[in-house]
Amino acid sequence: MKHLRSNLIATTVAAAVTLGAAATASAFTACQVTDTGGIDDNSFNQTAWKGVQDAEAQLGIDGRFLESQAETDYEANINSLLGECDIILTIGFLLGDATQTAAEANPDQKFSIVDFAYDPTIPNVLGQVYATDQAAFLAGYLAAGMSETGILGTFGGINIPPVTIFMDGFHAGAMYYNEQKSADVQVLGWNPESREGLFTNNFESLDDGRAFAQNLYDEGADIVLPVAGPVGLGSAALADELGTDALKIIGVDADLYLTDPEKGHVYLTSIMKNMDSTVFQVIQSAKDGTFEGGVIVGTLESGGVGLAPYHDMDAIVSDELKAEIDAIKAGIIDGSIKVGM
C-alpha cells in the first residue's frame, strides 16, 4: 500500500514536470520588482502593478512581478530578470542604488524606477517622481478644516524624500489654513525644519501602524495621515474600532477607499500618487520605441498626483471647504500658491 502511494506521488510529480515544460512566450514583457511591502500592499507597489495590468489589458504585453522579502533581495531580484524582460520597473526609493548598479552594468536593458530621480541621469533609466506635496497640501488644508480638536497627526515609514514629501505638503497645507483662517491647528509627527518626526522604520508592520495612530490619538489628534504603505492599514483598523467621529485616516498612494474596501469608511480622502498612469506611459513608450532615460514628474496639473473623492465622508465636508480646496488646487496649478517652503 505504501509502495503504491509513493509511486502515485512520483507519477504525479513527473506528470506535472512534463506538462510544465511547455512554457509560453510573448512579444513584450514588463517586469516589476517590489520593495519589501509586497505586491498587495494596498499602496504603492499595488498601484504600480495596476499600471502594468492596464498595459497588459490595453497593449497586450506580458506582465510579471517579483516580490522582495529583504533588502538583500533587491540586487538579486533585478539580476534574475535581466534579459528576460523588455523593461524592468523597480518600485521605490530604496531600490535606487540597486537599480543604478544594474543599469550601469547592463546598458542595453531598459529600466524605470518609481520615486527616484538620478542626477546626472542614466541613459537607460527613466525615473518617475511625483510632486506629491501638491496633493498633500490640499489634504492638509482639508484636514485642518475638518479637525474638531485642532490637532492633526502624521507619521512615516522611513525618513526618505518620497515619504517626507507627503508630510511636508500636509504640514504646509495645515499652516496655510491657519494663515487664511487665523486658526491654530497643530500637526504632530513631523517638523519640516528639523526634518525629524515619527517614523516606524519599516513598511510592513500593521501593529506599528496601529500603535503610532494610537499615540497620536492619545495626544489629541483626530485625523491621522500614515505615510507608510501597508502600515497605514493598522491605523485604519484603529479608526474603525474607535469610530470615525473620534479618528479619521487620510490614505496615501492609492484611493484607499477603493483598495481597502473593508475599512473604506474611515478614510477622509486619499493623497493619490497615480503611479499606474505613469507606469503605463513608460511601458507604452518602451513598447513603441520612444523610451528615453531621464525623469518624468507627476503633478496636480498632469494628473500624476491628486486628491481622492471624499466618498462616505462627502456629506460631512462642507460645501464651503470643498470650494476652497478647488480654489487652492487651481492656485497651485497656476503657481499663485506655493506649496514648498
Binding site: 504525479t12 506528470a15 506535472a16 514536470v17 506538462l19 510544465g20 515544460a21 512554457a23
Partner: peptide, 24 residues
C-alpha cells in the same frame, strides 16, 4: 515537503503545468 507544497499550490488554484514549471 515538495509534494505537500504541490498540493498546497493546487488548493490555491495553481494549475498543474504551472506547478511543474515552478518546480523546474
Amino acid at each position: 515537503a515538495l509534494f505537500l507544497g504541490a498540493l498546497t499550490m493546487l488548493a490555491t488554484g495553481v494549475d498543474l503545468p504551472t506547478i511543474g514549471r515552478s518546480f523546474i
